[in-house]
Simulated assay, not measured.
Amino acid sequence: MMTMLLLFFGTMALSLYASWKVRSAYNRYSQVPASSGYTGAEVAQRILDLNGIRDVSIHSTHGHLTDHYDPSNRRLVLSEENYHGTSVAALGIAAHECGHAIQHQQLYAPLKWRMAAVGITGIASQIVMWVPLIGLFGGFFPYKLAITIMAVSFGILMLFQLVTLPVEFDATARAKKVLAGTGAVAAGTEFKAMSKVLDAAALTYVAAFVSTLGYFLYYLLQMTGMRGNDE
């Protein structure tokens, strides 16, 4: 029980730190205007055009840091502050999402794997939320079966987060390269500020992987320990 509590609070602290880091960097550098004067939407359209991507539409949405690329509907969605914003943070995030669109166009393998795993990952997410409630505490599942289900489910989530890492790191690398190449973000102070925002955002994916890895190893050890006792 103590191990589970330490794991829970440890991963929660890591996630909160990663979230604080990206929000802190964004809030700071969203106040730094890019000398090019481009908005996030304009930079996104320019990047898509340069890469010959004609079937991806750009949209704005409500919320803070709700930016994402929707491969199923070929939509690049930017939060209103980044869609209309001209800061180095807004341009960096817009370019990062364009990186995913370019990955999709080029059939980037890790992105294809992540897209293929979305369905089973969604099921695994529901399982790890409900099994402890209806199984371990409600007695619906035998304890050994519940532990095995949790180990397998967290294994799926861990692999999904593992595949997500190269997808996000590659999109960030593409964003930095294209923004420097097009001059949308000036070299020096502007580029460094933009890089800090994207690097902080990458930390959230590292935290998610470490968290799921920790829970997977915990339940795996529980499962193997039960087998050892049976023998």
Rank of each mutant, 00 (worst) to 15 (best):
S36G: 08
M150A: 10
V206E: 00
S72Q: 15
F137L: 02
A146C: 09
W20Y: 14
T39F: 07
E80T: 15
G37A: 04
D55T: 06
A208F: 04
T164W: 01
A202E: 01
A184F: 11
A101Y: 02
G183I: 10
Q105A: 14
T121I: 10
Y218A: 11
L145I: 09
T39V: 08
K144W: 13
F216V: 00
A180C: 12
A18Q: 01
W113D: 11
I147C: 11
G37R: 03
I93Q: 01
L157D: 11
G99Q: 03
N51Q: 08
A184S: 14
V185M: 13
L78W: 06
A146T: 05
S87M: 04
T66P: 05
I123G: 05
T204Y: 00
M150Q: 12
I134A: 12
D199E: 07
D70E: 12
Y83A: 11
M1V: 02
L5V: 13
E190H: 14
V128Y: 05
L162R: 04
W130H: 11
L111H: 10
S72V: 15
A13N: 01
L162N: 03
I147H: 08
I58N: 05
P142C: 00
T224N: 10
T11R: 03
L78V: 07
V32A: 15
L213N: 00
V167T: 06
K177E: 14
T61L: 03
Y38A: 13
L221N: 15
Y83D: 07
L203P: 03
S87L: 05
S195C: 08
M223P: 06
G119P: 04
A89F: 04
L65P: 07
A184G: 12
D67A: 11
D199R: 04
R54L: 13
A180I: 15
S57I: 02
A44C: 06
Y205R: 02
H59V: 04
D230S: 11
A89I: 02
E80S: 14
I127H: 09
G138I: 03
L213C: 01
L78N: 04
F140M: 12
I156K: 05
Y69M: 13
L7D: 01
T148M: 12
L159A: 06
G138H: 04
T39A: 10
M115H: 00
R23L: 10
T189K: 14
G10K: 06
L179T: 13
L6N: 03
G188N: 12
H84D: 15
H62P: 15
M223Y: 07
T172W: 02
M129P: 05
V128P: 07
G214W: 00
L220D: 01
S211T: 02
A208V: 03
N51K: 10
A90D: 08
Y205N: 02
G155T: 00
V197M: 02
A90L: 05
H104N: 14
Q161V: 02
L221S: 15
C98D: 08
Y29M: 14
Q222A: 13
F8M: 05
G188F: 09
Y219I: 12
A151I: 04
L179N: 11
S15F: 01
S79H: 06
T224P: 10
I123Y: 11
S211C: 00
L14M: 04
M194F: 05
N51S: 07
Y17W: 09
T39L: 07
G139K: 00
P166Q: 09
K176F: 14
L7K: 04
S153V: 11
L203A: 04
A208G: 07
V206C: 01
E190G: 13
V88F: 07
L16A: 02
Q45W: 06
A186H: 15
A18R: 02
